[in-house]
Design a protein around this nucleic acid. Structure first.
Lengths: 187, 187, 187, 187
DNA sequence: AATGAATGAGGTTTCATTCAT
DNA sequence: GATGAATGAAACCTCATTCAT
């Protein structure tokens, strides 16, 4: 019947359910049923339930890693930061369900082995956008830029309007925030 | 020891554990053990596990309700919005653990009976701060102001600096965002 | 229905089944069914399956502990050793099902937390009966006395004859072995 | 690596693990992993898990069968019995891991198809060494001689001393026991 | 001679919940 | 105002086994 794509299908269905109902509330029975395989089949492909989440995380988190690697080699200029935000939005858009899951299950994720990794990644992003020389207000602006993008991903879905237009608006606001942070107080 | 206050103590401990490990991962056994009572005692005070969360939600959410009620009676001016943000921050600060819980367990909360209510409240807040007349970018700015405050509550803890100073900076950035939204593009 | 004796009944039934089919082969379902309670009831009284075995072990092993304590205060004479064997047989007889279980599930017991304790106890018994001054042959005689009693407990059931008579004969042979060990070769 | 000898290697590894952790606790997965083959490979060589144990049992138990066959043709004299013990020790030594497994997993073995066979073999050994004419005490002495050898195999490892010397001492004590049984009461 | 993929049965354990006392 | 005892459902996970390739 199924060809060698079962592993992939498990990841897809699992992510979908994890994102929808949360990690704890999603049972392996549900995943198996939706795939029309037995629970044991899941265990053939993954050692534990946590392993499923880890594998999804690793597969989809790569773009962020690459972004970080790239960013760390660039000069720490305003232009770089703007480009970081552009690329970050692209990464976020590409792995939207995973990010939704991470965002909406933070309490759970924290207790999973990926929790630490994920947090570190967030802190690194903050470090790349922030600047220790800035005053507190401007540092908040930078972090706010990041969270604007996160908010943009999910909460914004509840706002009417063309998705593409919304995405551009989000990016504009975020870029604006870091720009202001760099030019000293707006005005 | 102290009698009569058990209901309150249950809520406190439950919220603490829910916020720390998530709603699903926290069992009534854990809560009972931490309180040094039996699980059955919890059922004397609350009909179900969900009831505990609802009661916490209701007790602590009141300030937001009052803020909304107040805001709806005010003229929809920039000054009002700035004051809303000020009051919102106060409400957030007063019910920090609850908001942390709500924020970090969105997937779970969504499936709970309070989920709908909570979402509606968030949308109302957005509506009060936003303005349909504004362009998309400025609307994003308004929503971003809200999320800046949320981010400020939790992620900001990972940023070094005096908490009071950070709070003020967060408020400043948020107010700035709605102000810009109203004045048309910052100059 | 059941009065406060459920814990005891669990231990009794569990020991019976563990002794009959082995620890691993006996499932909690079986134990529960035989008691006409649910599996969950077992978990009200014991934290894990291993806990059941530990509790049985602790309850029934006490006589041996007392024997060791007593023996360690006596002079290390032949008479003492003979009395040790007499008391050891009494202890073995009193906790026959437990000893059968321990004897017949050594491989399993070794991986359980009681394994170490049990082994230590056996070594201590050997030390109390043995004597480092003796030659190797006589030391073997002493250890053999111990194992004669163990064999007497179980294998001997397959030999026809009056149980009481068999018990006495086993004791006689065991005592004889340590006596010979002390007098040098018989005659 | 080496081909063609997989069957043998499975038996070796299986016996090692069965003896160490018990039959039930050892899974085919563990055996396969240790051999760096798949579980399915085991099924190419053996029809079931029990089949593995049976095959080991048959291969290694042969010496005892031969000993029994030989013994049944001899005159039932003291000298014969002494020789039986000598040969029994040799057989035990040659198949030490199997005997350890049998000894330490009696509860499990009893429920396996080899259980009955093994028990019969033990009873036959007892019959060959015993003598219905003897009094109960002397019969116990004979059986004790057998168990002394078993004890010698495993428990004796915990006693310090040269292995060769221990083996000889064990044999001496065992022979002594049957000799006494035949000469009427010692002294 | 062996593997990759899967299954069905069953294991231990945990959970929210109930109820007589 | 709370406990002790228990339950039914379901969770995660493991196992021996099968079969097409």
């Amino acid at each position: 019947m199924a060809r060698g794509n079962t592993r992939q299908r498990i990841q897809d269905v699992a992510l979908e359910l994890f994102a929808e109902h949360g990690y704890e509330k999603t049972s392996l029975r549900e995943i198996a049923e939706k795939l029309e395989v037995t629970k044991a089949a899941l265990y053939y492909h993954f050692k534990t339930k946590e392993d499923i989440v880890i594998s999804i995380f690793e597969d989809l988190t790569q773009p962020i890693d690459e972004l970080i690697t790239w960013a760390e080699e660039q000069p720490r200029t305003l232009e770089t930061k703007q480009e970081i935000l552009r690329r970050y939005q692209a990464a976020l858009t590409g792995a939207a369900p995973l990010f939704r899951f991470m965002q909406e299950n933070q309490a759970t994720v924290r207790d999973l082995s990926i929790g630490e990794t994920f947090k570190k990644r967030m802190m690194t992003m903050a470090r790349l956008i922030e600047d220790p020389d800035l005053g507190m207000t401007d540092r908040v602006r930078c972090i706010s830029a990041l969270f604007t993008m996160h908010a943009g991903m999910f909460f914004m879905q509840n706002v009417e309007g063309d998705p593409e237009e919304k995405r551009e608006a989000v990016l504009e606001v975020a870029i604006d925030l870091v720009t202001q942070a760099h030019h000293g107080p707006r005005k």
